[in-house]
Design a protein around this nucleic acid. Structure first.
Lengths: 108, 108
DNA sequence: CTTTCATTTTAAGTCTGCTTGAAATATCTC
DNA sequence: GAGATATTTCAAGCAGACTTAAAATGAAAG
C-alpha cells in the first residue's frame, strides 16, 4: 500500500457516518449487506448512504457486487490488513510499543 | 480509545503534509524534533508546519514540549498503538485476516 | 408497456479545512 | 533596551466535503 491509497482510506475513516458503516458491515460478516439495509441500520437516507458507500468502495475499503437491482457491499478485510501494515511498518517503523498493541490487548 | 478520538486521529492522517510530519518524527525517534527543523524537513513554511503540528498535538498524535523558545514535537507511540488496537478490535472485530497482517508481513 | 422498487446521480447550499502572508508573542543576545 | 530568532495567531481566499431533496437510471413485476 502506498501513501496515496492510505490517505484515501484515512479520509474514509475520518467521517462518523462512514465509520458507522464500516462497523455495521464488519458486524454483518463476509456476506455483507445490500445498500438499502445499510442505510436503514445507520438511519441515513438512501442518497446519503450511497454517497458514503461509493467513497468507501472507491478508496478500496469495500467491495461492491450488483445482483439485479440490489448492490451488496462488504468489507475488504485485506485492505484493512494492508492499512494496519502500512501504519505499523511505513508510519511507525515497526515501533515495539505499537506492535505490542496489535498482539496483546494488555499492552495498551 | 473512543470513536471521537479515533475520528480525530484519522482526520490527521488523511492529510499528506501531516502524514509526512508523522513519518519524519518517527524517523527522528523518541526525542522528536523542534518545530523549525520539522518545517525545514518537509519544506513547509513555519506557519503551515505550526498549523499541522497543532492539529496533530490536539488530536493526541504528538506530544509538545516547550524549552524556552523552541518547541519539541514527538510522536506519541502509545496513541498510535491505541489506534491500531481500535482498528483491529472495535472496527474489525478482531478479524483473523487483519490480525495476521499485524503479526506477519507475509500475510498481506 | 407501465408501474414499482433499489440505487445512483445531480444540483444547490453550507460548512470545514488548507494555504498564504502579515502581524503578534515570547525568548534570547548584544 | 534594541534587535534577532522561534513559533504562533490572525485574516482572507479558495477548494473540497457533506447534506438534502429532486430527478434519473436500471431492473423486476404485473
Amino acid at each position: 500500500m502506498n501513501d496515496a491509497a492510505a490517505l484515501g482510506i484515512f479520509a474514509c475513516l475520518s467521517n462518523p457516518t462512514r465509520l458507522q458503516i464500516l462497523k455495521t458491515l464488519v458486524a454483518a460478516g463476509p456476506d455483507g449487506l445490500i445498500a438499502g439495509t445499510i442505510a436503514q441500520k445507520i438511519a441515513a437516507s438512501p442518497s446519503r448512504a450511497s454517497f458514503h458507500l461509493s467513497r468507501m468502495a472507491e478508496a478500496g475499503l469495500l467491495t461492491a457486487h450488483r445482483q439485479a437491482r440490489e448492490i451488496t457491499y462488504a468489507v475488504d478485510f485485506s485492505a484493512m490488513g494492508a492499512l494496519m501494515r502500512f501504519l505499523l511498518q511505513d508510519c511507525c517503523a515497526d515501533n515495539p510499543v505499537v506492535r505490542a498493541c496489535c498482539v496483546d490487548a494488555k499492552a495498551c
